[in-house]
Amino acid sequence: MSSNNQVYPVIWNDQSPAETLRGHVLLIDQTRLPNEYAVVEINRYEDMARAIETMIVRGAPAIGVAAAYGVYLGARDIQTTDRGEFLAQLEPIAQRLRATRPTAVNLFWAIDRMVKTAHQTLGAVAYLKQTLLDTAKAINADDVQTCHQIGDHGLEALPASPDKLRLLTHCNAGALATAGYGTALGVVRSAWRDGRLERVYADETRPRLQGAKLTAWECVQEGIPVTVITDNMAAHCMQRGMIDAVVVGADRIAANGDAANKIGTYSVALIAKAHNIPFFVAAPLSTIDFAIADGAQIPIEERNPSEVHTVGETLLCPTGAEFYNPAFDVTPAALIKAIITEYGAIAPAALKDQLASKQVV
């Protein structure tokens, strides 16, 4: 699902103009990239929940968009014309989708917006269902626009010199992780568009290798120069003067600016600080959770240990060893130069004053 080399990982597809309410969602299966480009058709909310859990779709904004469509798919199959009964049956659907990934706040933001829309919309159940589909489509379209804004604000925030920048990123915060264009890779794309980018260095991002598999794939699709490095090479590259700035995404940002992102991000931030290299977090307003004061309150998902001890069908570790597999870590606000949102690049300490009033479910 691409157009003019742009990738769109979550797309609503109407089967026909006369059957709008029987459309479906198309997802790029990110577990098969970069070796195979495959599209999965999603018709039921339970299938969407499993797609989120198994990381067929991944990245906080993309998960939010997918979950919004998931709420609609569940709502579409509710068999009642009674509004009160419809709303009662909608809640377990929302709860199932909320349970898929605990860290990415965009998931909860999108589901809450869908549920709130359902409760605030008056009229017949059929009209309510159509309104939910329209809301999911709006969340989808808004995210693409937001990512373009983040990309352009991020370009303005990057160092003024050198003329051609070398940027390091960790994990994938690109078009595949959003509705399109990307957050951290949105900044990269805007820099490339305006002739300010020399090269992207992509951390491989163990254990699931999203940098090596997904970030590098996106860059190759668009002809953006990309060099993949192992996670433990970042310090060496900075020490040798190969990196001008770091730009990463986030799955949840606390009110004080602490940011949760893929495991290993905190290490990169510490290394950047040691080398006086600016470290930026790029994320939409929906990623900021003003309900929590700091990063200590962000729930950290732990995933299956097989992601650590096995690659493909190859066992890397001896039988009998134990494993720890947190999916995220939290980078303290003190290590972040700015958080780049659709409203501009903002110092972490100023988030609440500048953005809290704009947070609307």
Rank of each mutant, 00 (worst) to 15 (best):
M233F: 09
L316V: 02
V7W: 07
S190C: 13
L167S: 04
V39H: 02
R32W: 06
P102I: 07
R96S: 11
I63Y: 09
W192G: 05
L128H: 00
Q120A: 11
E85T: 14
E85C: 04
I263G: 06
S190L: 12
I150C: 02
G320W: 01
S161E: 15
N5K: 15
A99I: 06
T103Q: 05
A345Q: 03
R303V: 13
I298W: 12
P159R: 08
G70C: 00
Q149R: 14
R44A: 11
C147E: 02
I11A: 08
D112W: 05
K337M: 12
I340V: 12
A272S: 15
A94T: 02
A124G: 01
A138P: 00
I42Y: 08
H309T: 07
D143F: 01
C171H: 07
V311W: 12
I263Q: 08
I93T: 12
D251S: 07
R206F: 12
Y37G: 00
A282D: 10
A321P: 00
A67V: 02
G295T: 09
I229N: 04
V330L: 11
Y37D: 09
I150A: 02
Y324W: 13
A49W: 13
Q145H: 14
A18E: 14
I93E: 05
A104D: 04
T20N: 00
D82R: 10
I56N: 09
A179E: 10
L90Y: 11
A99W: 08
V65Q: 06
L122Q: 13
K337A: 15
W192Q: 12
A124C: 00
V248A: 05
L97D: 01
A75W: 02
Q30L: 03
P17S: 04
V65P: 03
A333Q: 15
V220M: 13
N261T: 03
A296M: 13
G154H: 01
A75P: 01
L33G: 06
A138S: 07
H24W: 09
H309L: 13
I56P: 13
Y266W: 15
V226G: 02
A126N: 10
A282M: 09
K137Q: 07
A296I: 12
G344T: 06
D143W: 01
R76V: 03
V330M: 09
L26E: 15
A118T: 02
D194P: 04
V7L: 13
M233R: 06
R193V: 08
A333K: 15
E41Y: 06
A282Y: 05
R22E: 14
L316M: 11
N4H: 14
A356S: 12
A338W: 02
Q79L: 01
A160R: 10
V65I: 15
V115P: 03
D258C: 11
Y72W: 09
L209G: 08
A160I: 11
L87V: 07
H153I: 08
H148F: 11
I346A: 06
E222L: 10
V226Q: 04
I336F: 09
V71T: 04
V311A: 10
T117P: 00
L197H: 12
I28F: 01
A269N: 07
L315V: 14
L355N: 09
T331S: 14
A272Y: 13
L316S: 06
D134E: 04
N43E: 09
L168K: 03
I340C: 03
D194I: 05
G174C: 06
A136Y: 04
S16E: 02
P332Q: 14
D258Y: 10
V308E: 07
A345M: 02
Y45D: 15
M233Q: 14
S190E: 14
F323P: 09
C219A: 09
C147I: 01
